[in-house]
Design a protein around this nucleic acid. Sequence first.
DNA 1: GTCTATACATAGATAGAC
DNA 2: GTCTATCTATGTATAGAC
Lengths: 214, 214
Amino acid sequence: MTTETKKKPDDNYARIIKAASEEFAEKGYEGARVDEIARRACVNKATLYYHIGDKAALYESALLKIFKNMEAELSDNVDKAVAPDEKLKTLVTTIAKNIMSSQFSAPTMLREIASGGQNLPKDVFLAMSRIVAILHSILDKGEKDGVFVKPNILVTHLMIVGALNFCAMKKLVIQQGESSGALTGDPFIDESWESVGEYVAETLINGLKSRKQV
Amino acid sequence: MTTETKKKPDDNYARIIKAASEEFAEKGYEGARVDEIARRACVNKATLYYHIGDKAALYESALLKIFKNMEAELSDNVDKAVAPDEKLKTLVTTIAKNIMSSQFSAPTMLREIASGGQNLPKDVFLAMSRIVAILHSILDKGEKDGVFVKPNILVTHLMIVGALNFCAMKKLVIQQGESSGALTGDPFIDESWESVGEYVAETLINGLKSRKQV
DNA sequence: GTCTATACATAGATAGAC
DNA sequence: GTCTATCTATGTATAGAC
């Protein structure tokens, strides 16, 4: 950290990344406007270009910030649990917490999956594969112990993240459906990530335990 | 069908809708280009505007086409099954077929969920709620019969559609991850909708049957 | 480092001939 | 109904003053 490497670690940079995360989450990459990011961050647009670079650089910075937290927390928490079903429950609830308590994670991830991961940098793919690897070791151990029957690792993973990403958006979608006059008030609109995570975890654990051979 | 209402039911109109479905699925609403839709449909851009209208009208037409098929097929198929678990399996596999054998359904749906359903017309919300209603009646009956324990209708629905929409995109995402150098060849990349649907169905059915009270 | 002003490109939409 | 040409708006990005 010499004099030149970080002249001003003031919150300008952090505010820009935060603003970019918000804008990209709300509008997607193509829908997001650089002018709007600058406005949200309360900096001049030219300042934004000076500090970070073009729109693509803004997006990548925002993406990486979103995916940094989950992985470390995940392996820490899973290590604490002992039995495979406990580990699986911990994995699901930790992912539920990260996805459902962030405003940016689910919309960004959903759009990336929709585009076939076209804009995902290598680091994010690596983080994703490490998460699948954790699930893999849990399910393998559980199968050897006789508690899980013939688990499909990838589809199980997609059941978890698919369900939780959709659950993270359900409040907004239901509100939109209500305002369009198509839906009426849903009592489950305000479920916490704790209860959703617990439901998904228990359903999966019991589903894998008692699966018939297919 | 007077002389004036449908002058030319030739395939111009159909080709435009098809082209719009493709373009919107690949790029999303903001990313899609009207010029490109016209090019794909092999019609002049002005012709496209003359026949259908602006970009929003194009999008709504494409959306409705995607959602028309599933609902009818769903209630037909579910009616044929008798026991609640058989009905649930039929529902899941029918949704799997519709989502995973269409190139346009999953990307479009994922982006709509990501945006909180902002561009969904009322008709699509209604179709969605009817699908949830079918699931509701299945789970209610199953609970009364004692085969399902305390099912959460909405979260179960989101586990189904979340998992299947993600599964529909997994081949593309994995290929992208491979080409970025982050992932290595995955043997499950080419799973059929039949096997994915069956796995998701069986896992859910068994998970709901043997759930502990939470 | 930060600002104003602007260049440059592109996309949505339409006018008007045929 | 279909085409060419074009208008207009907007968005990304930068040049250059301070």
